[in-house]
Design a protein around this nucleic acid. Structure first.
Lengths: 189, 189
DNA sequence: ACTACTCTTAGTACCTAGTCATATAAAAGA
DNA sequence: TCTTTTATATGACTAGGTACTAAGAGTAGT
């Protein structure tokens, strides 16, 4: 019976990881054991009760929402001279990479660069009109990407921004963004 | 006391909206009324009890996580012919747009196009090497973006993919992606 | 075969954060 | 003052547990 317990516990762990909303009673039925057995299993595995599990998930949700800040810049701005230059830092984490290769997905590097190009514009409205980009080196999880943006030209309602992103002095991404700008406040609301 | 009740209820509503984790007892103390009053208020406002509130938040979190599918394509693939063509749909929602202007942030359109360019490649490893993109029209919330990708050229370990995105026949984004491909399985793990 | 041990099941008392129904007290308006 | 609204109190019940005690079943070692 030794195998059965370990096996049941590992399945229990997976089950609750993918579906934290199951009561002990439902779990007991699923595994054809008593409720007490399920509770002992949870104790041994240090899995909290249903309500605590749900609360944990909910708390994470609230944290995520706060961390997202949908209208903010992707990455953290460490230097900003409007219409001149800007620098932002993005720490690549597991959620940014392809699970198979561990390499950062391109659109995250793009998002960092693009939102920096938006941030650098000293006008209420800034939109990307076009861009030419290049991924020069793969970026892996745990690496820190530093994006440096620079305004390289202005013409009427267009601004050209160059962004270069580095991992420890090494160029990993470069792009030239043509930004459309508009200081007409009525457009922005 | 008419004002007091309405006022308390509207504050209660806001309080629970921003912090759903408060018990009736805590709320009663905060508003200096009895628990029963809080319960009557919740009834009138149709606000569920603490545990239900938490469950609702947690459910949303799980839905969000499932909707994210971090390693999957951004947008929903509706057609895929490997190394030939692919189509995906992305419904622009409030989280994709600038709150001030209501216009979709560029990197979401880029993410849809880029991940489609990755998906079209019939090899275990596909990475974006470079891209030239153009945002031809603003996209607003509630609009549905249909991205169409097409392989336009192959050379050794490079594949050129053209992506055009439309909102109701109207071109909103176009880009040409140069993809690096590798069928060496050892690289992928 | 007997003992030692793990694993499983059962049952009890208690807890939290409520529900529902009913009764009563206090405040405000006519 | 009388009536209505608003607030508080009380008791019975619920889900989904915790914490603890007790006992039976299965297996292994000697």
């Amino acid at each position: 019976m030794k195998r059965r317990k370990k096996e049941r516990q590992s399945i229990l762990q997976e089950t609750l990881a993918s579906n934290p909303f199951m009561t002990d009673e439902e779990l007991a039925k699923r595994f054809s054991v008593s409720i007490q057995t399920i509770r002992l299993d949870r104790m041994e595995l240090a899995i909290p009760e249903l309500r605590e599990r749900i609360k944990d998930v909910a708390k994470q949700q609230l944290d995520d929402v706060r961390a997202l800040q949908p209208d903010e810049v992707i990455g953290e701005i460490v230097d900003l001279q409007l219409d001149e230059r800007a620098i932002s830092i993005l720490d690549i984490q597991s959620e940014h990479v392809f699970t198979r290769s561990g390499i950062a997905r391109g659109h995250h590097l793009f998002a960092q660069a693009n939102s920096l190009a938006v941030a650098i514009i000293d006008d209420p409205l800034a939109l990307t009109q076009s861009a030419t980009i290049r991924f020069t080196r793969q970026v892996k999880a745990e690496e820190r990407v530093i994006a440096k943006a620079r305004v390289i030209g202005n013409e009427l309602d267009r601004t050209h921004v160059e962004v270069e992103s580095f991992v420890e002095q090494e160029l990993v991404f470069s792009g030239e963004f043509v930004m459309y700008r508009n200081n007409d406040v009525s457009v922005t609301k």
